[in-house]
Design a protein around this nucleic acid. Structure first.
Lengths: 185, 185
DNA sequence: ACCTAATCTGGCATCGAGTGCCAATATGCG
DNA sequence: CGCATATTGGCACTCGATGCCAGATTAGGT
């Protein structure tokens, strides 16, 4: 009767109340009224609880990128796609912020994020490979994939530290400033 | 009697022979002739075994950056520092490659790398903050820190997949291609 | 409603990483 | 040599994660 979404909310609430480390899987299972063993059927790990269905978002970013007109320069295309990927309805923003604060601060989750972001980077790399001709293993695709992730994470760090700003604005500004910095290198 | 370097070599050898997951801390301790408990006094975790004294390298990169002439544009300064950070004596290159292949492929180590690279990113962010005026928490410093890490990781991925190339060349090329891509955005 | 097959559940045992505690051992120094 | 100080490693424990299996639940056909 418990859904993954429900379980995720229960877990997230406990993480925010007591901290990620201090919350055990037993705590979460007990709070949800399920067995510990069952928890691991809903989520492959305690770490994954904090990630909604990220994979669905990555899939939609893939589609967005695939539908991008070829005239748009590569970086400009990525800029639009990444901004859209990170645009959330107003009512979800606060929730998203808390979730991301957890993911980007709790050490175990920071580590886990490197694994979860792999699919995101691959989506970018495949787009770049398709654009530039070649494979996602080539230098430019793999570098742009990692670099775009870096850009997004930099913007997130800023957004989390400065609650008055907007995430999409931070991302746009990061693109501008980075373009300028590379411009006069 | 056992030094950290010695222990690190023993562990790395086992990781390469049997794989990271398949090697337990007990195996490593036994191979080194020490107790399991003692292992954890030399290294805080099994994951850290694969990282030499990365912190010393980061410290020297910090010094290099601090000594950079102010006339050199920021990205150019970072380029030199990152290339030098990743320049190793010929006889160490093969060892370094194996170590990095492990770190960037074994899932547990990929995750752990996100934690270890934090100090590297901070070093970059602090340099950028000093250059641009402001704090490392500002948007440009934190973004450039993450982006430079992304660039380096992209170059590493390429280098690991293409053994015939040189790491420093891959990094230089990554800077060139990224500059060009941002140029016509 | 009823029975059967497929699925879901959760208890139990086990593994492996990591940590606190403490007694035994080794080491440095006067 | 003898004392103070590290270093060592055994033991017990916590917690995440996984295999196994029996019991419960659900779906579907009659």
């Amino acid at each position: 009767m418990t859904s993954t979404a429900e379980l995720s909310h229960i877990g997230l609430r406990l993480f925010l109340e007591r901290g990620f480390e201090a919350t055990t899987v037993d705590d979460i299972a007990a709070a949800a009224g399920i067995g510990r063993r069952t928890f691991f059927r809903y989520f492959p790990s305690k770490n994954d609880l904090a990630w909604g269905d990220f994979d669905a978002l990555v899939a939609s970013m893939r589609e967005h990128l695939a539908a991008t007109p070829a005239e748009l320069p590569m970086i400009a295309a990525l800029r639009v796609a990444i901004v859209e990927f990170n645009r959330f309805p107003v009512e979800e923003i606060e929730y998203h912020r808390q979730r991301m604060r957890l993911i980007l601060n709790a050490p175990a989750l920071v580590g886990h994020s490197a694994l979860r972001y792999q699919s995101w980077r691959t989506a970018i790399a495949e787009f770049v490979a398709a654009r530039a001709g070649g494979t996602p293993d080539d230098l430019l695709p793999s570098t742009v994939g990692s670099v775009m992730l870096g850009l997004a994470l930099g913007a997130y760090a800023y957004w989390l530290a400065h609650p008055e700003t907007e995430l999409v604005t931070a991302i746009e500004t990061a693109f501008d400033e980075l373009g300028a910095a590379f411009g006069d290198a």
